[in-house]
Nucleic acid binder design. Sequence first.
DNA 1: ATAAACTTTCAATAATTATTGAAAGTTTAA
DNA 2: TTAAACTTTCAATAATTATTGAAAGTTTAT
Lengths: 167, 167
Amino acid sequence: MKYEEAKDKFISTWGSLGSLWGINKAMAQIQALLFISTKPLSMEDIMDELKISRGNTSMNLRQLMDWGIVTKELIPGERKEFFTTEKDVQELTRIIAKERSRREIQPVIKVLNDVSSIKDDGTEKTKELIKQTKALHDLTLNADSMLNKLVTQKQNWLTKSIIKLLK
Amino acid sequence: MKYEEAKDKFISTWGSLGSLWGINKAMAQIQALLFISTKPLSMEDIMDELKISRGNTSMNLRQLMDWGIVTKELIPGERKEFFTTEKDVQELTRIIAKERSRREIQPVIKVLNDVSSIKDDGTEKTKELIKQTKALHDLTLNADSMLNKLVTQKQNWLTKSIIKLLK
DNA sequence: ATAAACTTTCAATAATTATTGAAAGTTTAA
DNA sequence: TTAAACTTTCAATAATTATTGAAAGTTTAT
């Protein structure tokens, strides 16, 4: 496999994986492109490489910047804006996990907490609702914490053990 | 908050959370409904409760059964089929995590592995591609393993400590 | 074998989400 | 101040995904 082929394969795979971490295809592909680029890229560069429109590029870059994953880089003597992404995967994951926790998991924890706190009127169905939403509430907290744990760990000790197991 | 209100709130919230764990709204809502129900429900019951069509109900129940989350229950003397869902959240999570790992994470690990194995031609961009896809490969393995870890743990020791921290 | 009771399938349609492109906005250089 | 270079916005459109409903399929009781 040659460089170009490998690069395209990587970008398109990472793009379609976007759904897994809750971002759209273009956004994931822009991030992937920046991730393997050795130098900052301009909007033009990104549009050309990914064959997407100016508007699409602008909007998705903006969102990536909102997330704190991509930063503007000003290059002396250049009028254009250039962009780079966080290159440390641990840090990248930490940012994404935090963002998703804040946007998606926290609101659910709140609802589960509310629902599991309704007054127990003694009926079986109410008891079941309370019991099961409590269990989900616990699980969600648990998952959220795991997410953060995964992400704040300093060393990838785990990776090493897995690779050992797989070989 | 009364039972009906709490129930509806739970079902709709859980439904909209579906995207987080990669399933569609109707599927998540059916699962939620079964999850808090004290007895198996028929297709009719589900359609009425969630106001969705017969076809939609049938297709999503089928998918939930494919995932192994929902099972058919035959009730003696009844012609209809009845459905129940796994009630143990730990087990539920384990099933979902396994399924997502198989369907989504494994293929990505494969691509990352392929891409990071391209011949190093000595250019900077090739080195960067190799380095960064290797890093992602490790991360993905790591995340996958975490997912499984989260899910196979017997006790929710973590939950307890979080609750303690939050209070 | 027949018909009633029930489930599945799938083409048509609706709803949602992503993308475009051109006009409006902003910044910079001279 | 002007105009060129660049970015952002957003209504229109395209692409994708979910949902319906009715016809076809299946099972069961008689």
